[in-house]
């Protein structure tokens, strides 16, 4: 793949000719799943390789935190934060499209599903006359894992997990990609001295 990482508006650091050429650290192989346009600066082979290697591990760890959360440190919130860090890493290394490629659902949908899960679990005990947030637990033995304790609170925690991931991703989407586009727009507007109609929610393609 040709070197295409350098962005037109990247400021030239130092006089030309003295430093290494622009985009020298861009990888030649494909490490991430889309055409990469990083969020900040030029492409970096180090970042992409590390992202590729680390993301599965981070996601696995986040699930571990989620399930171990009931009586040990962890839980939905911590797990969700860790999982969203994986996606933030992916965004930093690969840009907006890379982030979108890695997501099964849109951030808002994630939020909604998470809220449904959490509130559904919180409200479900009401149907049988128990107070809100009441929890049930089942214990059973699985061949490999030994004794397993399954709590209805886990569903609640999964909801929290999804809410956190959805929230962080919408923050990344709103503060990262869309703002870049808006900033560009506003700058052009000011340059063109058009009358300002107020910086409304525009966004769209970068």
């Amino acid at each position: 793949m040709p070197v295409n990482g350098s962005r037109p508006d990247t400021p030239a650091d130092g006089p030309t000719g003295t430093g290494p050429p622009e985009g020298w650290e861009a990888p030649r192989e494909r490490w991430l799943s889309t055409v990469v346009r990083p969020a900040f600066g030029p492409r970096s082979v180090l970042l992409e390789v590390v992202a590729r290697l680390l993301i599965p591990a981070i996601l696995t760890f986040s699930v571990f935190l989620l399930v171990s959360g009931h009586d040990r440190p962890g839980g939905g919130f911590a797990g969700g934060l860790v999982a969203s860090m994986a996606y933030v890493l992916r965004y930093v290394a690969g840009g907006r499209h890379e982030l979108a490629a890695g997501l099964p659902l849109r951030p808002n949908t994630l939020l909604a599903v998470g809220m449904l899960l959490a509130c559904g679990t919180a409200g479900a005990p009401l149907l049988v006359g128990a107070p809100v947030l009441d929890a049930v637990q089942y214990k059973f033995t699985l061949p490999v894992f030994g004794e397993v304790k399954l709590l209805s609170a886990l569903i609640f925690e999964t909801g929290v997990f999804l809410i956190v991931v959805g929230l962080v991703l919408s923050v990344v989407a709103a503060l990262g990609a869309r703002m870049e586009a808006e900033e560009q727009e506003a700058r052009e507007e000011r340059a063109g001295r058009r009358p300002r109609g107020g910086a409304t929610a525009g966004g769209g393609g970068a």
């Binding site: 709103a174 503060l175 703002m179 808006e182 900033e183 506003a186 000011r190 300002r196 107020g198 910086a199």
Partner: peptide, 12 residues
């Protein structure tokens, strides 16, 4: 932060 950014965007 998003708000502050918006304000900055409008007024420089």
């Amino acid at each position: 932060l998003a708000l502050a950014y918006r304000v900055w965007l409008g007024d420089e």
